[in-house]
């Protein structure tokens, strides 16, 4: 990050707030099915909380804290999202003929909730990782 900050209050507030936001983002993510929220919003919120950390602390410190390469999270999220679709093919035998209708799986009973949330996890990861990758890359460039 370009600017160094040593505002003590800021640092302490951030420490708490960032994790509050993170928690809230996870709540939003799970609330998504019935209330406002969901994969997109949760993902963006998570990205915001991590960004706040980046704004406050040194980049190196965060890399120690969160040793994740966000770039790998993008395909991981996509794989999860696409993969749940294939689950549909496996279970939804009547829909095999029009196989791109696999997202209609929740039509049939029990898998419904599980796959929808799984799918949303994919979206969540993809969105959060993409947003982070974009910003961190531009910020990290010298």
């Amino acid at each position: 990050m370009k600017w160094k900050t040593n505002n003590l209050l800021f640092i302490h507030v951030t420490r708490i707030v960032a994790f509050l936001i993170l928690t809230f983002s996870i709540y939003l993510f799970f609330a998504g099915h019935d209330d406002p929220g969901g994969g997109f919003i949760g993902g963006l919120m998570t990205a915001c909380s991590v960004l706040l950390l980046y704004l406050t602390f040194d980049k190196r410190k965060i890399d120690e804290m969160l040793p994740i390469n966000y770039v790998y999270l993008i395909p991981a999220g996509l794989l999860i999202a696409f993969g749940t679709g294939f689950l549909g093919i496996l279970f939804a035998d009547p829909y095999l003929t029009q196989y791109f209708d696999y997202f209609t799986l929740p039509w049939i009973g029990e898998f419904e909730l599980a796959t929808a949330v799984l799918f949303d996890v994919g979206i969540y990861l993809g969105v959060a990782a993409s947003a982070l990758v974009i910003i961190v890359t531009i910020a990290g460039d010298e």
């Binding site: 993409s130 947003a131 974009i134 910003i135 890359t137 531009i138």
Partner: peptide, 9 residues
């Protein structure tokens, strides 16, 4: 957002 980020880059 993706497009804007890309153009910014």
């Amino acid at each position: 957002f993706g497009i804007t980020a890309f153009t910014i880059a």
